[in-house]
Nucleic acid binder design. Sequence first.
DNA 1: CTGAAAGCGCTTACAG
DNA 2: CTGAAAGCGCTTACAG
Lengths: 333, 333
Amino acid sequence: MADIAQAAGVSVATVSKVVNGRGDVAPRTRARVQELLHQHRYLAPVFRHTEAIESPTIEVQFKGGLKSYVAEALEGIIDSAAELGASVVIGQASRAPHWARDLVSAGRRAVIAVTSVYTTAHLNELARAGLPLVVLDPLHLPDSRVNSVGATNFAGGLAATRHLLSLGHRRIAYLGGPTMAVCNQARMHGYRAAMEAEGAQVPDACVRPGEFTYETGLLGATELLGLQEPPTAIFAGNDEIALGVIETARARGLRVPEDLSVVGFDDTSLAQMASPPLTTVRQPLREMGGAALRTALRLARGEKAESHHIELATELVVRASTAPPREETSAHR
Amino acid sequence: MADIAQAAGVSVATVSKVVNGRGDVAPRTRARVQELLHQHRYLAPVFRHTEAIESPTIEVQFKGGLKSYVAEALEGIIDSAAELGASVVIGQASRAPHWARDLVSAGRRAVIAVTSVYTTAHLNELARAGLPLVVLDPLHLPDSRVNSVGATNFAGGLAATRHLLSLGHRRIAYLGGPTMAVCNQARMHGYRAAMEAEGAQVPDACVRPGEFTYETGLLGATELLGLQEPPTAIFAGNDEIALGVIETARARGLRVPEDLSVVGFDDTSLAQMASPPLTTVRQPLREMGGAALRTALRLARGEKAESHHIELATELVVRASTAPPREETSAHR
DNA sequence: CTGAAAGCGCTTACAG
DNA sequence: CTGAAAGCGCTTACAG
């Protein structure tokens, strides 16, 4: 601690305050000291012990249910952890006063958050505790303090839409997730780009935001299929939405893919088990989980991440939910 | 430490030596000091921290993928753990020489195994390490050394079959999981009991074992629907099998439920998102996970479990995949 | 074998 | 917002 104080040009007392997250330190001083602490891999005395004996423990947090999407990423995290000798604790995001420090005390060395929203306050608390964070599939635009792992959503949206265009569809709708989610934006812009490149129309009514849920699929498809000129194909923002679309079509007596083509996104196990099996854009969720785990481990060791944001390639998987559109006359219902 | 020194009538330095196990202390002095240390619950500084805050850690192991079934039980485990201040590590079953002892050294206090097979050798290794085990949805018949949590599978099989019978079906097939799995046996016998009570035939060809997978549904339904007298309803051993059945029906141009009724088992999220939404037997997976966690915690504290085997109630959930059979003539295809 | 004394790494009440 | 100073809990080299 004396070394760090000297390097930072402050007293040992001030360094101590930074370590303990006390308020009475100037932000600039705090930042400088924290940087040095990190460089020197300083660990508060209470934590030194655990460090020595335990294998690094990574905390995985997710919000909402443990959906297929999260479960499959988690499989990748667990497999990589087993391989690399790390332990994975799975927990809920806590909002207790010093949650990040509590996590460190409980032996965690990094946090992986799956599709979570992190505010500046959270990031500050993590920084105070010296606990690195990796976000899998970030909902926000990458913040410079956050390492993240994602997929090429724009390219995926492009590929899905081109596939439908190549089958002959021109009235294609996009039924997506939350407007603010960057992955959703990228998918939607991929869709728009493909449509524009083909000179296909994108009426406002054909681009609908929602949630990444089955209910959004159910409701959105009802709206879309009720339009005067209903789409002949729907590109859903994820597989769950796509399943809702398929069910709405079935309930209306429309067959997929004969009467309506549907494309999903993610390629969770849901897609293979859908009826009909779903054409979708595969996200390599296990690999993404593995990448997140490896990044978390690097950061836990005090190394820099190789890259601030890693993006893995998506891939179109054609199954049975897409086909050429019916003739124009029969497409009008 | 000063207190203890005074109580023992020695100097702080001597107490420190005892704590650190150094050699240069008279045996009698050492004994006296150690006694006092114990009385005062003295903990060396390095251990103080972890000991104080570290919550009991439970290891959850599962085999194969993190399917919906496991994911939903895991949600229950995590929620209860958060509530009770325990941590959940999720790992893979290891078969290293002293795996159970390694788990104990890594801080685990109990193991929850989801749908896993445990051999006598495993139980011995666990017993040697003093690590209690709770099995969720045991595949074996309950062993007296194993605590387990399950559901009323027989009653569920009975309810599912009675539902189909009450709709007017008489040719009902059971397409289940592995023959040796006790949960599968119980479901199947529930089915048989309901059929017999109604005086309905159960031809051998109408009871098929398999795996708890989509593929079993696909293949089994192909066989069943190819029979001379195909069933008008299929009771599937779990939701995944049911989805395979629905897809096989769709691919053959049969509509569910008009041409074929399908019932699943589990009521995972798959069931709600199926097309049509699946009539199924609900297992309270979250509650089962919670029960397993609480049992594991009791055992970790050295208490006896309240009961050797806990069984939670199943419940029929009627959705859109079941309907009365078509007239006999049209049922022949 | 024991303990007085020096010292280490850290924290904190308080003066500026 | 900062740091000098006092202090805490502990360890250790060394004199006895």
